[in-house]
Amino acid sequence: MSNQAFYPIGVPGQPWGAAEKAAWRAQQVKQRSYADDVLNTIEPLRDRFDVVEYGSLDYGVEHYPLVVIRSLHWRDELPTLLVTGGVHGYETSGVHGALQFVQQHGRDYVGRANLLVVPCVSPWAYERIHRWNPDALDPNRNFRKNSPAGESAALVNLLEPLRDSVLMHIDLHETTDTDESEFRPALAARDGKDFEPGEIPDGFYLVDDIETPQPEFQRAVIDAVAKVTHIAIADAHGEIIGSPLLVPGVIKFPVKQWGLCAGITNARYATTTEVYPDSPRATPQQCNDAQVAAVRAAIDYALARGDDPRDSELK
Rank of each mutant, 00 (worst) to 15 (best):
61 V>P: 13
64 Y>N: 08
64 Y>K: 05
65 P>S: 01
65 P>M: 00
65 P>D: 02
65 P>Q: 01
66 L>F: 09
66 L>G: 12
68 V>Y: 02
69 I>V: 15
69 I>C: 11
71 S>G: 14
71 S>L: 08
72 L>F: 13
72 L>K: 15
74 W>G: 10
74 W>A: 14
74 W>N: 10
75 R>D: 12
75 R>C: 09
77 E>S: 13
81 L>F: 12
81 L>P: 09
81 L>W: 06
82 L>F: 04
82 L>P: 11
83 V>G: 01
84 T>D: 03
85 G>N: 05
86 G>K: 00
89 G>V: 00
90 Y>K: 11
90 Y>L: 14
91 E>G: 01
91 E>V: 01
92 T>Y: 05
93 S>Y: 01
94 G>D: 02
95 V>M: 03
95 V>T: 10
95 V>W: 01
97 G>K: 03
97 G>V: 09
97 G>N: 03
98 A>F: 04
99 L>T: 05
99 L>G: 07
101 F>Y: 07
101 F>K: 05
103 Q>A: 15
103 Q>R: 15
104 Q>Y: 10
105 H>T: 07
105 H>K: 14
105 H>D: 13
107 R>A: 15
107 R>W: 08
107 R>P: 02
107 R>T: 15
108 D>F: 06
108 D>L: 11
109 Y>P: 08
109 Y>N: 12
109 Y>Q: 08
109 Y>K: 11
109 Y>R: 10
110 V>R: 09
110 V>K: 05
111 G>L: 03
112 R>Y: 02
113 A>S: 09
113 A>L: 08
114 N>V: 14
114 N>W: 15
115 L>N: 04
116 L>F: 13
117 V>I: 12
117 V>E: 10
119 P>I: 05
123 P>A: 08
123 P>L: 10
123 P>G: 07
126 Y>I: 05
126 Y>S: 05
127 E>M: 01
130 H>P: 03
131 R>C: 02
131 R>F: 00
132 W>I: 09
133 N>G: 14
134 P>T: 00
134 P>I: 04
134 P>N: 04
134 P>M: 02
135 D>T: 06
137 L>M: 14
138 D>R: 02
139 P>W: 10
139 P>V: 11
140 N>S: 07
140 N>L: 07
141 R>N: 05
142 N>E: 08
142 N>L: 13
143 F>N: 01
145 K>Q: 15
146 N>W: 08
147 S>F: 12
148 P>V: 00
149 A>F: 09
149 A>T: 13
150 G>V: 10
151 E>I: 07
152 S>F: 06
152 S>V: 01
153 A>V: 02
153 A>G: 07
153 A>Y: 02
154 A>V: 01
155 L>V: 14
155 L>C: 12
156 V>P: 03
156 V>L: 03
157 N>L: 09
157 N>V: 00
158 L>P: 05
159 L>T: 10
159 L>S: 03
160 E>H: 09
160 E>V: 03
161 P>L: 06
161 P>S: 06
162 L>N: 07
162 L>D: 13
163 R>E: 06
165 S>F: 08
166 V>G: 12
169 H>P: 03
169 H>G: 06
170 I>C: 12
171 D>L: 00
171 D>W: 02
172 L>M: 14
173 H>Q: 14
174 E>I: 06
174 E>N: 13
174 E>Y: 12
